[in-house]
């Protein structure tokens, strides 16, 4: 497989024509950043299947939509199943150049949609499933999801979440699907390369995008990219790809395989209001979790 293009060049300019200015996202929202990269890779040759999530609102109101790509809005639990149907219909009709992309949040993927994701993965449906992870139910007002990290405040965990984040990428690796990757809105070129790789393959492909949410995580909208990068630089969020039975840590995360190079996780936590309730004891627990995660990733990447 080819090496991912990571030079800091502009994304192909037609990305601008696909994601249209004037959407309904909050200022500083990470979702349009990621959607822009998706548009740059697939252009109009994609059908986005979107369950209930922030993007249902971001794309705007009837009779308009803020994206020059086909979109099917679907009920919460059903993105992977609808995408399966679309994909099977296109293949039956002999349409091969249109990619079916399920575009769902963490709630629609890790919680209510997890059965349909698992089903489609097990059947190895020819779809790309993208989970953009803002780590809570943001559209309904910041409620905890299974993807909310330990220690984070949400409106339903006023003193911080007790449990660890559900690791969807690992769950999908366990399904034996052709392609699993983690990504971040902080690294659009890395995401671009991963989408290109996914595009060149067939079968069930899963990409998990870390997407810091300014109102939900309680930070100033200008820091979306800074927070996303800090998650990687502290080693809390690790970018990798898994295919052909091999896990490869991606460029932006590679330096942090060495624990000494990782920034202190306090830097990531203190920039966000949602971790204001966190205790020192819990910070130590999180550090332990980070080390355990890296241990697994390092083992897998051999």
């Amino acid at each position: 497989m080819s090496k991912i293009e990571t030079r800091k060049l502009p994304l192909p300019h037609d990305a601008r024509d696909k994601l249209l200015p004037g959407d309904a996202a909050c200022p500083g929202c990470p979702i349009p950043i990621a959607l822009k990269v998706v548009s740059a890779v697939f252009g109009e040759k994609a059908i986005l299947v979107i369950p209930a999530c922030c993007t249902s609102v971001i794309l705007g109101t009837y009779p308009g939509q803020a994206i020059k790509t086909s979109v099917i809005h679907v009920p919460f639990a059903s993105a992977a199943a609808v995408a399966s149907g679309v994909s099977q219909a296109l293949r039956t009709r002999g349409i091969k150049d249109v990619h079916v992309i399920a575009w769902a949040g963490d709630g629609g993927t890790a919680d209510i949609g997890v059965a349909s994701v698992s089903g489609a993965a097990e059947r190895n449906e020819d779809i790309i499933y993208i989970m953009y992870d803002n780590e809570a139910y943001m559209n309904t007002g910041i409620q905890r999801s299974s993807s909310t990290p330990r220690g984070a405040w949400t409106t339903t965990t006023p003193t911080g979440k007790i449990e660890n984040k559900k690791d969807m990428a690992r769950i999908l690796i366990a399904h034996g699907v052709p392609y699993v990757a983690t990504a971040s809105v902080g690294y659009p070129h890395d995401l671009y390369g991963k989408l290109q790789r996914a595009r060149s393959m067939s079968g069930f492909r899963f990409i998990h995008i870390h997407a810091p949410c300014p109102p939900g995580w309680r930070f100033d909208p200008q820091y979306t990219v800074r927070v996303a990068k800090l998650a990687v630089e502290t080693g809390l969020w690790v970018l990798y790809e898994y295919y052909d039975g091999k896990l490869t840590v991606s460029g932006p995360s590679r330096p942090y395989m060495d624990p000494a190079k990782r920034k202190p996780i306090e830097e990531y936590l203190k920039i966000q209001g949602r971790f204001r309730v966190i205790t020192d004891e819990l910070i130590n627990e999180i550090k332990k979790y980070v080390n355990e995660n890296w241990y697994w990733i390092t083992k897998m990447s051999r």
Partner: peptide, 22 residues
């Protein structure tokens, strides 16, 4: 035939396929 994992997904898959022209 899509051997789905639930009835919810059964009609969901039919819906998706129908929208895409099947």
């Amino acid at each position: 035939m899509i051997r789905v994992e639930s009835e919810h997904s059964a009609l969901a898959a039919c819906f998706g396929a129908a929208v895409a022209g099947a």
